[in-house]
Design a protein around this nucleic acid. Structure first.
Lengths: 213, 213
DNA sequence: TAGATTGTTAATCGATTAACAATC
DNA sequence: TAGATTGTTAATCGATTAACAATC
């Protein structure tokens, strides 16, 4: 499926549309209107229609969008045919959270390995995912053809880990460390920091409160 | 400190500036240039200067910005004088990750309570944070004057939890559940979903790879 | 002075939304 | 037909960046 350029935000929403649609698929309904999708995600119906326009999916004026077809269509856009393999680097609370959260989700993305430097965790299996020593990152990434990595190690270790991952040929990195990383432009990098998020909430909560008082 | 309106992105970056500055404060340096801050965060110097302009902080043409002063200034903007108290609802891996990640960070934000429905966790203390039964949310929120909540429960439970929190008078919610929440406009809501983030990375990693091949 | 820096406006880019024609 | 919906363009809003004057 070929689409020239898709805005970042649209990609995020496509992921959300799919998950929402999967939830209502089980029910007897076969079709859904843009305003129904919009309502479930608290966005506007126009936005839904525009996103679907961008991926070239057309609905029906009477019945709306065919749920099953749309799910498939989104899959064609955001998944790869063979699927992509994912590694979690750092098997602390956050790494574990990711693995258990992901478990059982049908998906073209599969977490196939975890890495840590704690000897007690090495060679154990957590929620179906084997844990290796971080020294073996390069070896395992190449052996298992892993293309995505999630970094959940303590922040001091993040830069070295990132470098190792890039050299091993990783294609995308999701960095949960507050340390901004330097990676080659061939690697897609997404960074997220929980503290910044919390401070943002605190700021706007305060603002709201002042405003409505 | 009064600033009329601050863009969302600027608020996020202010949080990052502060953390970065705190890291270099210990060193002998007392001043920092916009391009130094920019380099550490992989953004442009103009963006740094513009953000600082928005909060009304001025640097020195010769020496740049006074690190200590700037940290204080950012604090005046994004913190409240008395500080804000935070609760974590759901003491699974993600909730624990948040608490231990936050531990030891000097901050006007303090995690003072956790909630769970697992009897084994109730009345235990995790990393200095006491855990209560979710039935006591309203009571504890009011008693301790908690204004921010982080939701890390399984997604089915999120809507009820959110409603309870809002009724108890919470001012801001950070929702880590894939379930979009409905809250009153008086409450600031920020949502983040790890799966969507990962799917986004997977998509752009794939795109990058196709493009550079 | 020459060079480096800040502070700020205007231009551009990206994302959302308003408006509306087309269709069933 | 009237009413509800989709699909799409144009307008608007928000965020970043280019350009440059002012200053030390």
């Amino acid at each position: 499926m070929f689409v020239k350029h898709l805005p970042h935000k649209t990609v995020e929403r496509l992921s959300q549309y799919r998950r929402t649609l999967l939830l209502i698929l089980s029910k007897e309904k076969t079709h859904v209107f843009s305003h129904e999708i919009a309502q479930m995600l608290h966005i506007t119906p126009v936005q839904v229609r525009r996103d679907l326009m961008l991926i070239g999916y057309s609905g029906n004026l009477r019945k709306g969008y065919d749920i099953k077809e749309l799910i498939e269509m989104i899959g064609k856009i955001i998944d790869t045919e063979k699927g992509q393999k994912v590694a979690v680097v750092g098997l602390g609370n956050l790494g574990k959270a990711f693995i258990s959260y992901f478990k059982g989700k049908r998906s073209k993305l599969t977490i196939v390995a975890a890495f840590d430097n704690n000897p007690y965790k090495i060679d154990k299996v957590y929620d179906g995912v084997p844990c290796f020593h971080v020294d073996r990152i390069s070896e395992i990434i190449k052996r298992d053809n892993i293309s995505i990595a999630i970094i959940t190690v303590p922040s001091e270790q993040a830069p070295v880990i990132a470098e190792t991952l890039v050299l091993a040929g990783i294609k995308g990195i999701l960095n949960y460390t507050p340390k901004p990383l330097n990676v080659s432009p061939y690697v897609y990098l997404e960074e997220y920091d929980m503290i910044t998020s919390l401070e943002k909430v605190a700021f706007f909560a305060k603002k709201n409160d002042e405003r409505f008082k």
